[in-house]
Amino acid sequence: MTVTFGLLAVSSYVLWRRKAGWGWSLVMAALVLGIIIFTRDVDFSAKLGLQL
């Protein structure tokens, strides 16, 4: 989670100081990291009682 927010902070910084448009790719990397954390946390079959 810390790395996710770190990527978001760096992308905000480059947008603020350097007006750099490539910061969006860091945001996407942060979201991909978030999706990985999310899918690890979900554990659909055990926690929701679903039979997938």
Partner: peptide, 13 residues
């Protein structure tokens, strides 16, 4: 925390 990250992403866009 993941929802907060999503909100930062929206704000960034």
């Amino acid at each position: 925390l993941l929802q907060r990250a999503a909100m930062v992403g929206i704000a960034f866009g």
